[in-house]
């Protein structure tokens, strides 16, 4: 890997840390509420008191992007963790026990894998109403199979490894064998995949709220801001473009940081 890329990843980690801190404490620092108008509508960026300008209602865009970022991060984190844990549970069970259970679980996994996130989100929204929780459930529902497949493959591979056979010969069986000798080798892969996935989940959350399946207005959600603002793109470009850029930047940062993590874990393994 060329050294400039390494620098890029380091930079990504540094920027990501800044973004994380900003997202955590930023809303506290901002003098404005993200849902109460704080200025005239359609103020362009760099207006006095409004770094990124205001939207059609006069809400401060910078404040909303900060809070939207926090929501995105939190959502993505929760979704990824739940999907990873659920996927690991099912993948491990399928990979380790094998046989009929494996076949059944993997068919079920395929079934979920084939579902498009948007359709599931619509179904969930129909049942629970639109909102952040609904889109989180929907994304988790379509996201865990990826981990189940990944983990199953890794578990099957690891289960055949010599050290697992040796441990089995030592009399270690069942759950204990999996927990002690199999899963730890799967964890780094899952961690790397998850860290790379966070970017994807952020984009998916934004995409769902872009098509109106996320939290209702005036919740500061990046996808919603971009979609609601799209009609003003010609006359007030900053209203949809800045939240859109924020989504892109966030997911790029997570990708680079995830790549960095992968490089670090690979380096350790070598």
């Amino acid at each position: 890997m060329p050294s400039w890329l390494r620098r890029g990843e380091t930079l990504a980690v540094v920027m990501l840390s800044v973004v994380l801190v900003a997202a955590l404490i930023g809303p506290l620092l901002s003098p404005y509420s993200s849902i109460i108008p704080s200025g005239a509508p359609h103020l362009p960026p760099l207006s006095a008191g409004h770094l990124f300008g205001t939207d059609e209602l006069g809400l401060d865009i910078a404040t909303r992007i900060l809070e939207g970022t926090r929501t995105s991060l939190l959502t993505a984190l929760v979704v990824t963790v739940i999907a990873a844990v659920a996927g690991m549970l099912i993948g491990t069970l399928a990979g380790f026990v094998g046989g009929v259970l494996d076949t059944v679980l993997m068919r079920v996994t395929d079934l979920f894998l084939a579902l498009p996130a948007t359709i599931v989100a619509m179904a969930v929204a129909a049942g629970l109403g639109t909102g952040l929780t609904s889109s989180m459930i929907a994304i988790t529902v379509v996201w865990w199979p990826l981990y189940a497949r990944l983990v199953r493959g890794e578990v099957r591979r690891t289960a055949r490894a010599l050290h697992v056979e040796a441990a089995r010969m030592s009399g270690t069986r069942g759950t204990r064998l999996v927990l002690r000798h199999v899963l730890p080798s799967v964890l780094p892969t899952v961690a790397v995949t998850a860290s790379l996935d966070i970017g994807g989940v952020i984009v998916t959350v934004a995409a769902l709220s872009f098509v109106g399946l996320g939290a209702p207005a005036p919740a500061p959600e990046l996808g919603l801001m971009a979609s609601a603002g799209l009609q003003y793109v010609v006359n007030s470009w900053w209203i949809p473009v800045l939240p859109g850029l924020a989504v892109g930047l966030l997911s790029l940062l997570f990708n680079y940081a995830g790549d960095g993590l992968r490089a670090v874990l690979r380096g350790k393994g070598a």
Binding site: H163, E165, A167, S170, G171, R180, P184, S185
Partner: peptide, 15 residues
């Protein structure tokens, strides 16, 4: 390869 890399020697024997 027959020793689980993340377990300590003591843990492996104690199993």
């Amino acid at each position: 390869a027959s020793l689980t890399p993340w377990r300590t020697v003591g843990q492996l024997l104690a199993e």
